[in-house]
Design a protein around this nucleic acid. Structure first.
Lengths: 357, 357
DNA sequence: CTGAAAGCGCTTACAG
DNA sequence: CTGAAAGCGCTTACAG
């Protein structure tokens, strides 16, 4: 075995290659490759022997060589185009990633993660990753109306899975360029939330929302208005925020200071709902006596406040797992299809109750 | 240009290679490579012409080919070996990642992320990544006493940066196999915290802690005890937890139910401190009148509670950036060195005050 | 300053 | 069932 020089001058362990295995087994490299990859053309006995030699020598395929000849990176990409502070605060992203991981790590596929600082950095990353064939496909989250990533990915023909296309947009599958979608049920869930509050007697329900340019937020907005109308609720207010606790507190203060304050508020994350608890107390509103609060995307944080926060809950890790499974399937040439919806359910805790008559 | 067949049967855009550029420019592939990589051996005029043709053709190097010949993956790896739920809840990890990203994305290096479900999965991942040359180096966090990753990485000779080796362990640099360390000042910071509370007149200070097997937690534990003794504080209690809000609440309840409850509690994360607020209120302790609470690793969550939580703050993104810079330097063959400490500072908010006499 | 060639470590038709 | 060979798209000594 030749001892090559390490880049930094010291001796290093020479890489074991299929050439070493072939020599040891008295076979050609081709035969070894077939044996190792479970391809036909090798006897079972030979295959076993090769496997055993490979294990003994501690062989692992060079990803670069494998990728170069097979045109497969065996990696998928995820770009997160939100401010780092938001990413850190929302449990969603890490939970989603762990769901992806649980699927892809099983089959030796790696995850490339990029946190895009600038908005256009995201498209640039897709472009570069694909041009360099660093990834075999991508998972796209936080879709917006007229999302520029959609035509880019279509034109580049990157296998992709779009996550969070709400079911209330029946024309979405076309809009995402024939690629796979993992839909979410934001509209349906919002309807459930409003019906629940209406049943408790609430007539003035407000919503402290995220940016409506995101499709899933728009779906919630729409369902909020529609369902409120359906229930005959007149006073429907939506306050837009940047998801920060501060913005949530400000929105709550504004809503509760109005002449006819709402008796229930639905938030688009957990932090804002927590912040609103403090504001409510400060302004003398008893929760849930005077005011019901409902958080969205339940998290352990919702369990530790006083009162604990009722919240809309979904299995985000499962959502990530479904997205990864769909993408792997898509990359492998599976037919394009829309995956099942991840169901959101209402968890009732102490922050919601009957409206005071 | 030959139109190759796509894996799934449809026509695809043929990849632009340096062969195309060479043909277009009337040069050899070698000359093109030199021109594109800024190597000497090509005239400035030629270099410019080649660059221009490459841009016009939309050429990007194949990462696989480049890696195969240069033995550089142009990627670094990060394995997170904590339960997904914890990873999602602690802003630390995503902030740390965004700090890494801010450095590596600048030079075209990618980040491979793995969320290890099982403990030994972490070592297996390092082993595989390195054997496949998927990464040029790794960043290691959450070091423990007798960490099995340390000898593994030393034996495999993986370039690595170990983050969070506390400065109170002066023998650590040796223990991490001559690799680069980014140290943290957990011991010093704990000392600052205790001195601050002691100056406010607190004599019974308790600590609601994470697992002491982590070096940074052990450093806090040690400094906690040492500084308390130095200040002549007798009653020093430490309750271990799993970082969950529930555990924090339980620990607080236990501490406050004792015959002589502490007048100040220091927590190892923000969630537990938030949970303790509720418990304190429930048990009739006024914060900060009867009880001072101090969170560790400040986060926006600490700002929105009532009262807002005083907390130990550090720039986690900067920590990630330093780690990434050190690793890139290390990979490039820079001399091994211990990087600067990331300083932790005390942010005083409403949850800490003078001890009631 | 430039060209022709070998090599990185695999995969994959193509002959035997 | 197996071997010899070409090829993936780069980089890098080595000649000219």
């Amino acid at each position: 075995m030749v001892d090559r020089l390490a880049p930094r001058g010291g001796p290093t362990i020479a890489r074991i290659t299929i050439t070493d295995i072939a020599r040891e087994a008295g076979l050609s490299k081709g035969a070894v490759s077939y044996a190792l990859n479970g391809q036909p053309g090798v006897s079972e006995a030979t295959r076993r022997r090769v496997r055993e030699i490979a294990d003994r020598l501690g062989w692992h395929p060079s990803q670069a060589a494998r990728s170069l000849s097979s045109s497969r990176a065996e990696a998928i990409g995820l770009v997160l185009g939100r401010p780092p502070r938001l990413l850190a605060l929302e449990p969603f992203y890490m939970e989603f990633i762990s769901g992806i991981e649980s699927v892809i790590s099983r089959c030796g596929t790696a995850l490339l993660l990029h946190v895009a600082e600038k908005a256009d950095g995201e498209c640039e990353t897709y472009r570069r990753w694909w041009a360099q064939r660093r990834v075999d496909g991508v998972i796209v989250v936080d879709l917006t109306a007229g999302d520029e990533r959609v035509p880019l990915i279509r034109d580049l023909q990157i296998p992709a899975v779009f996550v969070g296309v709400p079911t209330s947009h029946p024309d979405e599958p076309q809009r995402v360029g024939g690629n796979v979608c993992v839909r979410t049920d934001d509209g349906v869930a919002m309807r459930d939330a409003i019906l629940y509050l209406a049943r408790l007697g609430h007539r003035r329900i407000a919503r402290v929302a995220g940016a409506p340019r995101y499709l899933h937020i728009a779906a919630r907005d729409e369902a909020f208005v529609t369902t409120a109308a359906e229930c005959g609720l007149g006073d429907v207010r939506v306050v837009q925020t940047d998801y920060s606790g501060e913005a949530g507190a400000r929105a709550t203060r504004q809503l509760l200071s109005a002449p006819e304050p709402p008796t229930a508020i639905v938030f688009d994350n957990d932090i804002m709902a927590v912040a609103s608890l403090g504001v409510a107390a400060e302004l003398g509103f008893d929760v849930p006596g005077d005011l019901s609060l409902l958080a969205w995307d339940d998290s352990p944080l919702c369990e530790i406040t006083h009162p604990a926060l009722s919240a809309m809950h979904r299995d985000v890790a499962a959502l990530g797992a479904v997205a990864a499974t769909s993408l792997l399937h898509h990359i492998a040439g599976g037919s394009e299809e829309v995956s099942a919806v991840a169901a959101t359910s209402l968890i009732v805790r102490g922050s919601t109750g009957r409206a005071r008559m």
